[in-house]
Design a protein around this nucleic acid. Structure first.
Lengths: 352, 352
DNA sequence: CATTTTTGCACAATCGATGGTGCAATGAAT
DNA sequence: ATTCATTGCACCATCGATTGTGCAAAAATG
């Protein structure tokens, strides 16, 4: 039977029931009672009543009074790809292990939405915030600073708050080199057969492009601007770019550096329009790891960013009392084709 | 320059500045001022002061007073796969469009964690909750009912709250039939060559198994218990199951119905251990859509659940004042191999 | 037994916003 | 000019917890 939504018990209810004052009840229930010299027996009684009546603290009230909430936020650009969803997963585990409540929100790469969202979080007195892949980290910072909210950037650095990012330059070098070396000597790749698609004008893309070009020049003695096609972080724009290229050249470049799995989805859309023959000889390097992407019918080399490492580092930084504004580089990992890595889900017990 | 975290302006500050009372300021700033017959000019003045001083309401205080929070929650089993991350993405868009704040949390398929998490959300006076793929929806329901929280189940039904799920029976029939028909007449699949892997003892798995068996008997005149291998929702257990099968039979079944993309990842892990030759003739049907999964080197047929449809329906139900406890079936969609569908990300503008 | 110390708790202000109620000033109606 | 209705706003209790302070009663000390 549905019992009517009986309103929740408060410390005042328990106060009456136990014969103690509200403040005593509060102290018992929030752990500060030793300090307040509450008798063990009083505490025991109150605790018993509390779970008899299923008391749970009203966290809004607590938050209002103490201007803390027990919430830790993660601001994401989007949910729907494996990079960010893994990040959310790791993040939650970390926050939970500290006994706090993780809340994940996305802001669609929109600077205004980013700021508005953070303002909302602040209005709930979120205690800490990880800002991942923000389009305008410094804008977010300004909002945070105004209210003293601890925050760390991840994935894309800001200039005013500590940042933890992966070493995109090194990663791009590794990935590019792996693409090049994947071709045997007799089918060697030329500088104008290796293209970079995707990304936009953000720190990560710039670094990756820098790494791509550097190693390309070192190993191939060549590179040109036409080998770089930034398409934004959208499957659709990437698809269009591939289509255009294909129309122009009659084929895709044999070597493809794809900036982010989101853009890789653009290649999928292209693939859906063309027979497999168009792909027999290509080698793709994707900056970002997706387990299914790793097993496509052509060689796909991927970079897996060390999400767990970045999250860990971010929380370490937030634990400091006066963290210095600097950018920490975390090394990413090269993932050869046909590799199924473990992820944060593996940490979860599943009773078969 | 870092201005010191000057504490945020409150209605009291604005009250002093404007010469009006706090309640007037409050009314102006929360929109109820017309009703309270505040003069237009007074309102204008207050509004100007408000954004001069960057006033934003303390939502904990508001929530405490009004016992509403403006938060809408989505409880997920896990973040890290495309099905649930798409769900999060759609959910956020819906909630945002209503001017509320979406918050997404996962509970790792752990009934206790589910209940604890919902209790936490309730402590923050979350206004509405979508419970997706909960292991124990009725347990969650009990917690919600205790505090009058509106909620709807998605993906896995409960018996005490309205539920929106996809038609798993029909979906499984479609998928199974598509697998069978994918084989040409000369290579026809036998009943003992078509296996179902993955899932566990939940409503969705049961329905899918029922659909799988029904159509199998109709089209193949055969089915047996050994063709069903529930492995739980874990890549690892699924991998182990595949390995065992392979060891026993020297090959994989030619027809594979895989229950959820999470289990499909188990197949990836298996694949990483074995040469591509082990897969040349298999056809996989996966209940859940993953764009990369669709392009693997063997035919992969997928079922895409109508996430957008389910979310929409869920919100419609929550908008009713006395929703009836029933289960709504949403039709899923069969996705042929090599198909790149659009997703919730496509709704996001990206300034290239 | 008188005094000091310790124990155990109650009191009350406070966090920031909301909304019911009441009342003065203004304008309209008679 | 008196009465009545309307306008415009202030007052105050309230939501549920936290925390500094104060004060009896009990215990320790002399």
């Amino acid at each position: 039977m549905e019992h009517l939504p009986k309103k929740k018990a408060t410390i005042y209810d328990l106060s009456v029931l136990s014969g103690s004052s509200p403040s005593t009840v509060s102290a018992v229930l929030n752990g500060s009672w030793r300090k307040r010299r509450i008798k063990e027996s009083t505490a025991a009684l109150i605790r018993e009543l509390a779970d008899q009546h299923q008391y749970t603290a009203n966290l809004q009230a607590r938050g209002l009074r103490s201007s803390r909430s027990g919430l830790v936020g993660l601001l994401l650009p989007v949910h729907d790809n494996r990079y960010f969803s893994s990040m959310a997963q790791s993040f939650e585990a970390h926050v939970r292990s500290r006994g706090l409540c993780p809340i994940v929100v996305s802001a669609c790469r929109d600077p205004d939405e980013e700021r508005r969202t953070v303002e909302t979080l602040i209005s709930y007195s979120v205690d800490e915030l990880i800002v991942a892949g923000a389009t305008d980290p410094d804008g977010v910072h300004a909002v945070c600073i105004g209210s003293g909210l601890k925050h760390v950037n991840i994935d894309l650095p800001g200039s005013r708050a500590p940042s933890v990012i992966s070493d995109n330059y090194q990663g791009a070098r590794m990935l590019t080199e792996a693409i090049i070396r994947h071709f045997s000597d007799d089918l060697k790749l030329g500088p104008d057969e290796l293209y970079l698609f995707g990304g936009r004008d953000d720190h990560a893309s710039r670094e990756r492009i820098r790494g791509f070009r550097a190693i390309k020049r070192e190993l191939m003695q060549g590179d040109s601007d036409k080998c770089i096609e930034p398409t934004g972080y959208s499957p659709n724009m990437a698809q269009v770019a591939f289509e255009r290229f294909y129309e122009r050249e009659g084929k895709l470049p044999r070597g493809l550096f794809i900036n982010s799995s989101i853009n890789f989805e653009g290649l999928l859309r292209f693939m859906a329009q063309h027979p497999n023959e168009a792909f027999v000889d290509i080698v793709v390097g994707c900056y970002d790891y997706d387990p299914f992407g790793s097993f496509l019918p052509f060689p796909v080399i991927m970079i897996r960013q060390d999400i767990e490492g970045m999250i860990t580092k971010a929380f370490e930084i937030m634990a400091e009392n006066r963290p210095s504004v600097q950018t920490y580089l975390i090394q990413p990992e090269l993932v050869p084709p046909r590799t199924a890595l473990k992820g944060p889900l593996d940490a979860i017990k599943d009773i078969a």
